[in-house]
Design a protein around this nucleic acid. Sequence first.
DNA 1: TGTATATCGGTATTATAATATCGATAACGG
DNA 2: CCGTTATCGATATTATAATACCGATATACA
Lengths: 216, 216
Amino acid sequence: MFVENEKHITIQALHRMPYYLQKLRELKNEGVEVISAPKIAQMLNLNEVQVRKDFAAVSDSKGKPKAGFSVLELISQMEELLGFNNTDDAVLVGVGSLGHAFLAYKGFEEYGLNIVAAFDLNPEFIGREISGKIILPADKISEMCFRMGIHIGIITVPEEQAQKVCDQLVAGGVLAIWNFAPVHLSVPENVLVKNENLAASLAVLSKHLKEKMKNL
Amino acid sequence: MFVENEKHITIQALHRMPYYLQKLRELKNEGVEVISAPKIAQMLNLNEVQVRKDFAAVSDSKGKPKAGFSVLELISQMEELLGFNNTDDAVLVGVGSLGHAFLAYKGFEEYGLNIVAAFDLNPEFIGREISGKIILPADKISEMCFRMGIHIGIITVPEEQAQKVCDQLVAGGVLAIWNFAPVHLSVPENVLVKNENLAASLAVLSKHLKEKMKNL
DNA sequence: TGTATATCGGTATTATAATATCGATAACGG
DNA sequence: CCGTTATCGATATTATAATACCGATATACA
């Protein structure tokens, strides 16, 4: 007879949350205090029932008929859920062009991610400073993650090196991996890999384009 | 009584394709000529039926019982489908840290994407050369896209500017938009927006981590 | 103050994708 | 050369997510 305190949130709903959050913050800045699901749905091109369900999944506060939901309450509950108000430390491996950009990118902090160390396999980079971080040799990954209690790893190395780097992160106690290499990574089942496969996205774009062009 | 020549491929299947392709190329390099669905499934941590169905969706060549599928045929048919063997021209808008990295990134060409022009709103950047491309003023977007017959636009500007840039791309005849700004973009229905929302990915990671840490 | 209505929450239905099942068949070993 | 078996394709089932529907209710306005 335990109370189910964990709301079930689908992965798709989770992906929609940042869009809600962005729009809600916009509305807040315009002075809007209450917003209805159909209005949000229209703005984001979603189904109104889906919006209402998504809101119900994050929020325990109820919406009022004819009016809607409290913008401020939704914002704070979403930030809570998404972890954007408590910062996680992360390490980054691979300071090629993409890794370089991430080290320079200020936006991550806004989402609660703080890159505390960067590694590379290339001796040429090691010891150099990029955006205020000293680049460390890749063979120190496990040790450093363990010592600093890091649980998030970002992989921006070429595909050939990705699995090896991944193994080192896991050995260092990392539980969540953000993988930008276009390869499948094998990990123990308690570790989550979130793939950011640019090739996959391009495939979608390219397919769509091919179909559009055919009809011209 | 027309023959259905367009195979139906789900969006999820399309996302899996680059992983298959990567693995198949690896196998090809090892000299493997025929591979079975269960083996691929095991390597990529997928269901064997799913793999077989995905293969059937791209390929008209049949697999052989007890043996499997021709690695070479699968590779060429996937490349064909994904459009990795015919290059599309694209423009990029926003040369902040991420845009900068994309201009420097060589990998896109491998996937059939060629960035032919880059734009920015910031007068400070205009006229400067980054990775061999001259940065043009954003108000030239529509004109240039139209003149050069560009159909793909990459948006790497901050969220406040994204919708405006998007409208200009659409006005210039762009049909597919790769959006890295964490906002929903409104477009006509014949235009595809592929969102690459880093915040959304981080949300997934953060949620997973929060649950893991709770159990410690 | 009463009536119309936009929106709510909950439930039912439909759509989509993943997985399980099974008879058929080509390769392999004895 | 014949049984054994891994894998196939096709079909059935289950899981998951999206959408439609409906009675209840708070607000707005006559």
